[in-house]
């Protein structure tokens, strides 16, 4: 029958880190959380007057480089982008401060995810001291206040991990390259 062709990707009950027994519940919870804390889809048109989608793209390209420079884990990068989008969904920002928002969000995400987060000075340095430490710290608390410290969110990376697992269930060797997407 057709049903028997479907592979159960949660069949590995022996590996405690795979959380197989309740993987479906984790997935459900994450999807619900995602709906609750999703950034608005049209903030560029509705709210932002000064910045454009192109500027956001440039900022994110730059943040990818920064995260490589400081050897940050991928989760930090994805969380950073989630924080930026959620901030921009509710707050108007001038283009001069967009990069400031970017580094401040990355600093928050590093503190949440990394074992040794880079210091505020290092984030100033990476902007070639365009912004002072005081500005970065002020933006940090502005972002945290706006988001009410709600940082436990599923990101693209969270779901990607699950999808890769599903996609590879019939292969023996895990495909590491996909991790670097």
């Amino acid at each position: 029958s057709k049903e028997s062709d479907i592979v159960d990707i949660d069949s590995d009950v022996k590996d405690p880190q795979a959380c197989s027994l309740y993987a479906p519940y984790i997935d459900d919870t994450r999807r619900i959380t995602e709906l609750e804390r999703r950034p608005s889809v049209n903030y560029m048109e509705e709210l932002q007057k000064d910045i454009t989608p192109n500027m956001r793209a440039i900022l994110i390209d730059w943040l990818v480089e920064v995260s490589e420079e400081y050897n940050l884990v991928p989760d930090t990068l994805f969380l950073t982008i989630n924080l930026i989008d959620r901030f921009l969904s509710h707050n108007y920002i001038e283009k001069q401060r967009l990069q400031l928002l970017g580094v401040s969000c990355m600093m928050i995400a590093s503190k949440y995810e990394e074992i040794c987060p880079p210091r505020a000075e290092e984030f100033c340095l990476i902007t070639d001291h365009t912004y002072t430490r005081r500005e970065v710290l002020k933006m940090e608390s502005e972002v945290l206040n706006l988001l009410h410290f709600q940082l436990s969110v599923p990101t693209t990376k969270t779901f990607l991990r699950r999808f890769i697992q599903a996609a590879q269930s019939s292969y023996e060797v895990p495909c590491v390259e996909l991790e670097f997407m």
Partner: peptide, 11 residues
């Protein structure tokens, strides 16, 4: 002071 909001507090 230089860490901003401490990582422990954020977590």
């Amino acid at each position: 002071i230089d860490v901003g909001i401490p990582a422990n507090t954020i977590r």
